[in-house]
Design a protein around this nucleic acid. Structure first.
Lengths: 144, 144
DNA sequence: AATGCACTTGCGAATTATTTGCAACAAGGT
DNA sequence: ACCTTGTTGCAAATAATTCGCAAGTGCATT
């Protein structure tokens, strides 16, 4: 637990440690990279950002750590159209994504109404929703 | 144009030919495989099914053909959680998918209400929707 | 029906994204 | 500080898909 950790990173460390996850230098660097990102970085980007804090981090460890974090519900894995998974911390309210197909920009949004309808549909079909993916792919209106 | 083609396959052949797409033995076999499938086969599965009609079809050709068909809007490419793209003909009404996380079964459903809400959300964010992806992952509901 | 050319194909090698085996290393309870 | 067990970096292994190239083939034209 380095004194350079932000409060958010320290919180994550405590939570994980409480669940028996060992806190290593590399994991702290990866958590920091995620905590300091407001976008949706790929594994490769998480690697780059992590290395600014700890240059010893390897891509394999990034993947292994992201996998653990995803399993614990600490982060969310998105697979938008095209290539590669993109990650984000899960410690914010649930939201879905609108992807700008021209720029790749990702906009987060929520729709309680849609969430309700999804649950209703699943119920009618005899299912309970475990999770869902809603992605809108769009272009800026009236422009080119 | 073989006399063993089903009407649906012949239609597809005509449409594609009209757009300048050459109709080869392999492409007919692939179209047939898709036309005879009511599920969502992977590229590998499309290969297997196509080979029943024309054993010379290769995986590379399956991928190349699926890519062309997707570009023409003839088929839809789905990327459900986990691995690999899964395909289906686009000549049926729009629908979304509910995936049974235990069995992998895919159930199709529609919700005009959700579609409206999506368009509305995109509009509020200043976008026009190009396409969207809505997938519900669920488990069969049961009372404990 | 024969011809020609551009498009297509099969094959294997190349890519891309991610995972894994293994020996060295380090976290954290004692 | 010690020890046990989980973790790491590296390189090699996978999995899914794409690509280069020489041989083959649609199909518009004759």
């Amino acid at each position: 637990m380095s004194e350079t950790d932000t409060p958010m990173v320290e919180n994550l460390e405590h939570e994980l440690r409480a669940e028996g996850v060992r806190i290593t230098r590399q994991r702290v660097a990866i958590l920091s990279a995620l905590a300091n990102s407001s976008d949706h970085p790929s594994a490769e980007e998480v690697l780059e950002r992590s290395r600014k804090q700890d240059s010893s981090v390897s891509l394999a460890t990034v993947y292994r750590t992201l996998s653990i974090l995803e399993g614990r519900g600490t982060i969310l894995r998105n697979e938008f159209d095209g290539t590669g998974a993109r990650f984000e911390l899960a410690n914010k309210p649930h939201h879905d994504h609108l992807i700008d197909v021209d720029t790749g920009d990702v906009i987060e949004f929520t729709s309680p109404r849609i969430e309700e309808l999804q649950a209703e549909i699943a119920r009618e079909l005899g299912y309970d929703i475990v999770h869902h993916r809603l992605e809108l792919y769009g272009k800026v209106r009236h422009q080119d």
